[in-house]
């Protein structure tokens, strides 16, 4: 293995590690919300510090690799896209923390809606994150396209559930204080879907050299 290959391998491992932490945080943040239980929040905040540390490490490794090895072709795409994926994962981690903070705030209020559709949407968004990372690791182009297409369902769910919450707020103004946190959580989940889509698009680009962002699906 050349030193460049070793460095790329190190970046890959760091990203996989980071993705695993972020996925755990998403799932734990949803438990905080749906089980109305804040016992996992400290673990989430501690894990987030590790995610941020990895974000800096991956950026540093990427910049060093570009400066010292001047990779080209697929190696170049890999390093540059890994740095972008790193940024998207870090933002997903921030959204997981955001969900946790708001879930803790929500404990002060009675339950606004039954958690049926929202956990489904959250599970789909979380699955998009894990599948986008899978496509990145395995180079599975079809899986990347599949993730991009699933984002439309997330967007539809976002509109449907937020309309439902707004309608409840209109009927009963006493729930507004709690419901506003729920709307923000819904936005966090929708953004996680968007960021997972970015990762899938970047993964597709690594494999093919073709940009499919902004709906230019092949």
């Amino acid at each position: 293995m050349t030193e460049l290959e070793e460095r790329i391998d190190n970046i890959r491992h760091a990203l996989v590690n980071m993705a695993s932490m972020v996925e755990t945080n998403i799932n734990n943040s949803l438990k905080c919300l749906t089980e109305r239980n804040k016992s996992l929040s400290d673990e989430i905040f501690t894990q987030e510090l590790e995610v941020n540390k990895l974000d800096n490490e991956i950026d540093t490794q990427g910049i060093e690799t570009l400066a010292l090895f001047q990779p080209v072709s697929e190696d170049l795409r890999y390093v540059v896209m890994a740095m972008k994926i790193n940024k998207d994962l870090e933002r997903i981690g921030d959204h997981a923390v955001g969900i946790t903070r708001k879930a803790v705030e929500l404990l002060e209020f009675p339950t606004v809606i039954e958690y049926v559709e929202l956990p489904k949407m959250a599970f789909s968004a979380s699955k998009m994150v894990s599948d986008s990372i899978k496509s990145f690791i395995s180079g599975n182009k079809q899986l990347a396209i599949d993730v991009c297409e699933r984002d439309r369902e997330i967007d539809k769910s976002y509109i449907k559930i937020s309309e439902e919450i707004i309608s409840l707020m209109k009927n009963d103004s006493s729930i507004i204080d709690g419901a506003k946190f729920l709307l923000l959580i819904l936005k966090d989940i929708e953004r996680i879907g968007d960021l997972a889509t970015n990762i899938a698009e970047d993964s597709y680009y690594i494999q093919t050299g073709t940009i499919i962002r902004h709906g230019n699906l092949i």
Binding site: T2, L4, P71, V72, S73, E74, D75, L76, R77, T208, G209
Partner: peptide, 17 residues
């Protein structure tokens, strides 16, 4: 050639493999 060559052999050479 340097961003997305068509042939694997080219990719391997320019990548130092």
């Amino acid at each position: 050639i340097f961003m997305n060559p068509s042939i694997q052999q080219t990719n391997d050479y320019i990548s130092g493999r």
